[in-house]
Amino acid sequence: MRTVFKRELAAYFRTPTGYVFIAIFLGLSGLIFYLGNLRTFSGDLLTFLAQLRLLCMLLCPMLTMRLISEERQKKTDQLLMTSPVSLGSIVLGKYLAAATVMLITILLLNGFSLIIILYGKLYVGEWFVGHLGFVLQSLAFIALDLFMSCFGKNQITGAIAGFAANFFLWLTDLLAGQVSIGWIRDSLNFVSLYARYEPFQLGQLSYASILFFVSFIAVCLVCTFRVLDARRFSEGGAA
């Protein structure tokens, strides 16, 4: 797993993908910070972080799209899948590489917290809860997009599948309001990443939400594993 992880992480920074992702993410969040905080002299970190969800939804597919599709397109998966490495550790290695790029970005994102410290007041508790929530949420998006990218025949369709899923999860709240059938509403509410994030946005540490995000990630990874495993049976190579 370490081997796969290291190669994938290096690949992000060997190709423009990693830099572009970080640059766009920080650039756009800078804009949001300017509009939401600087111009209004607000030191509200939690609202700022909550607004970054949109960036996650838009940009996470970019991080995951190459992990699976590119290997299939270039047939490099033939090396991986015939090595003495289990499929589980391949999936995990790839996921962790994407997650690491995300974490690096979030680390750099703390520059904005620094500005708040310099010119205002930052509560450590708020900082911690806000970031915990944001990390969990973005890792969940990455796991979901990794899973969705398995269904694309190439990187682009993989990314589009990721966008679609991200937006669907975003819409679940609105949908749930419209649905009168009890169990559908309940299940829509259950998977809503938005609702699960809410406690963090209010500065509350919610164990239920933490548990949800962690299990959400686990389920996505297991599903990715299943799809890739099943592919051996259903087709041959880059179909």
């Binding site: 190669r7 060997r14 270039k74 047939k75 490099t76 998966d77 991986l80």
Partner: peptide, 12 residues
């Protein structure tokens, strides 16, 4: 295993 198409990572 050497597959029909060598499994090379272009950026390496």
């Amino acid at each position: 295993y050497l597959p029909e198409q060598p499994p090379l990572y272009d950026e390496m």
